[in-house]
Amino acid sequence: MAARRTTKKSNVSADELKAYYRDMLLIRRFEEKAGQLYGMGLIGGFCHLYIGQEAVVVGLEAAAEEGDKRITSYRDHGHMLACGMDPNGVMAELTGREGGYSKGKGGSMHMFSKEKHFYGGHGIVAAQVPLGAGLAFADKYKGNGRVTFTYFGDGAANQGQVYETFNMAALWDLPVIFVIENNQYAMGTAQKRSTSTEDIHTRGAPFGIPGEIVDGMDVLAVKEAGEKAVAHCRSGKGPYILEIKTYRYRGHSMSDPAKYRTREEVQKMREERDPIEAVRAMLLTGKHASEDDLKAIDKEIKEIVNASAEFSKESPEPALEELWTDIYAETAPQNA
């Protein structure tokens, strides 16, 4: 995954830029493949694609350090790939197979990785917000200097538990970064029809939580804002809000006809603001990479994604005995 920087620099290296390109492209191609497998009936139920929003997670992962935690909603495939989870395990969970991260028992919306400090994957809108603050509470209790990235959307921002959490996070100076991925539509409802405030991060101000707007189609802007937020949290100053303005190209879920916005609106974003194209142009014009270099990355990503699709088809369905396992833990969990 993206090379992690150990020192603060105002510029990114060519290698880092290439890594962001690669990581964003992996998410894009993975999601396209997931959409295809859904169309073939290999993936069932709900499937929420992340296409268009790739710069958000890739930029923030570039600002994270080993041991930092992340938790998000049901639109979670991008977060998992960005934090280094295995595409095979993610895709096989989407197809409900034994090789999936949850042995096929969680599905698209419910995946976890203790190893990568990824705490889900939550299907109830905004439930992950107090959970994320709870993870931060545990880190503060242990005094380990870790921060938790708690992602939620503009739709979730209207749930009451978000503000219950803002209050306690501020009251107790919890090291949590609230990342509002504002893709402008809560399922089919545009922000202006659902949300009284234009800039959602301003809702943190009454609680004393600083926040800012970030251009979510610019991976470098996201990374820079992420570093600022991380520094704030790690220094013990309490929570921070990043409202990242982004855009999802696909429907809310696979079964969304997307009649609430025009085809032209989507097309305009894709053509003018695509986060991957932007980095590609930066690499080429800055002569940080040649067309051939980028073709090689494209090829590598295609192979990884195709391999994940193959794995997800070949991995067997879970054994029937799995129906009855993992309901109760027998021994104390080693939650980190």
């Binding site: 935690k69 938790i71 705490y119 439930a127 917000v129 107090p130 959970l131 994320g132 603050a133 709870g134 993870l135 931060a136 509470f137 545990a138 880190d139 209790y141 242990k142 009451g160 538990q161 219950e164 959490t165 209050n167 306690m168 009251l171 080693q334 939650n335 980190a336």
Partner: peptide, 21 residues
């Protein structure tokens, strides 16, 4: 002591349990 905010502090408790407490 928590504020009067059951939904919120129940969720923070669950998150803290995920986090090893």
């Amino acid at each position: 002591d928590t504020p009067i905010t059951e939904h919120g502090f129940a969720g923070i408790g669950v998150g803290a349990a995920f986090g090893g407490l």
